[in-house]
Design a protein around this nucleic acid. Structure first.
Lengths: 221, 221
DNA sequence: TCTGGTGTTATACAACTGGACAATAACGCT
DNA sequence: AGCGTTATTGTCCAGTTGTATAACACCAGA
């Protein structure tokens, strides 16, 4: 019997790799790092699961790459946004609530990092990036004479913690709404940096929208 | 060939059920809610995996019961501790850093709740409990004339968020040590409630020790 | 002594997993 | 046109998973 083989839609290596990483991230945003399956990723991409192994030697490599891509792209777009804003608006924009699917990935990374070394390394790296970015934003506010900070790096860690905790209450538990979430973070930041109450809420630019989980079947699993 | 059957160590229903829940929690603290396996739980208890089903009709029921037990026992011992302390010490004790294995379970619950309805229900319930307890502690501080709060419930949500975020930075990412973790939470609380700086650090009672993950093989998986 | 409930074991099973690999088809280069 | 490279496929594998079920051991009560 003649071999009846579908003609493969051949793509360049980088293109396909990117496609796989994006599909993985989409699934991670829904089912978590521990829940993604090579076969599901392959189906999402539209290829056979054996092909995944051609690009990523192991499953952990794949999910770590997905997280790396998530944060890298998130931060690069954030940096672009921050550059176009005045210091106070940049601070508000950075501290304001993040799209749900983005924070889902972060929360999942926190819990999974203890068991996946590759993920822990990426998490550590990107967490420091975030702290540095916020430190720079704080310094811009201070340099412009709009606020005060005895230790911008320490204040950055403090505000990062507050933003993370608020995001958990908002996205993970739905204990607070987006308004109260922003109120809390803005309030602490204003008190910590000596800004007038309400400054950050007024300066807050339009929020970014999530995108990772949009195309996938949300009710899967 | 004669049947060689080990004589079963028969226990009462409640006893065995409790044993299973505790073993599950021990494993959850190490491998996460998504990582526990009925067979591992059974091995940890020393029974056959089929027996688990005799007590919990489904896997999700089991892990939800484990989380429920975790928080219930944690809160009951916390309540006992708080009752014996003066208001400021109680506030410091509640806000101070929590044992690592305890927070691991919380972080994991945050990320897994989106996919396990039973877990989401338990998480929601216990989160509200925590908020109520902290609200009561804040009210005790205010009633004693030691601090001020325009809205104890809102301040409770704020401080819960800060404590959670700091715990993530401390336990999940190891970005800050226990000293800075407490400094941040205490500092925000003192500013928010009008306490003199350093009040909470001085009043902080001895920290509680973790216990859930102590007996299990830490390098498993 | 029979009977029924219950704690417990043993075993089965169908689904799914990550990984491995040979075969094949398209591509890039000369 | 020929040839080496590689993207892609289909298939296999050994293992693990949650769930199911039958059988056994023990005990209380009729």
């Amino acid at each position: 019997m003649a071999e009846q083989r579908k003609a493969p839609e051949r793509k360049s290596s980088d293109e396909r790799r990117d496609e796989i990483v994006r599909a993985t991230l989409r699934l991670v945003a829904i089912k978590g790092f521990a829940g993604v399956t090579l076969r599901e990723v392959a189906t999402e991409v539209g290829v056979v699961h054996g092909l995944i192994r051609h690009y990523f030697s192991t499953r952990d490599d794949l999910v770590a790459a997905a997280f790396d891509f998530a944060v890298t792209s998130e931060l690069s777009s954030d940096r672009a946004m921050l550059d176009g804003l005045d210091p106070v608006a940049a601070l508000a924009g950075w501290l304001a609530s993040t799209p749900e699917d983005h924070y889902r990935v972060w929360i999942d990374a926190w819990s999974e990092a203890g068991r996946t070394p590759a993920l822990a390394a990426a998490l550590d790296r990107h967490h420091r990036d975030c702290e540095r970015i916020l430190t720079a934003v704080i310094e811009r506010v201070v340099d412009a004479g709009l606020g005060a900070s005895a230790n911008p790096a320490a204040d950055s860690r403090l505000l990062t913690a507050v933003a993370d905790g608020v995001a958990v209450q908002h996205h993970g538990i739905a204990a607070i709404g987006v308004t109260e979430a922003n109120d809390i973070v803005f309030g602490v930041a204003e008190r910590q940096l000596g800004l007038a109450p309400g400054t950050l809420a007024r300066a807050n630019p339009a929020p970014a929208r999530g995108q990772w989980a949009e195309g996938a079947a949300l009710l899967a699993r």
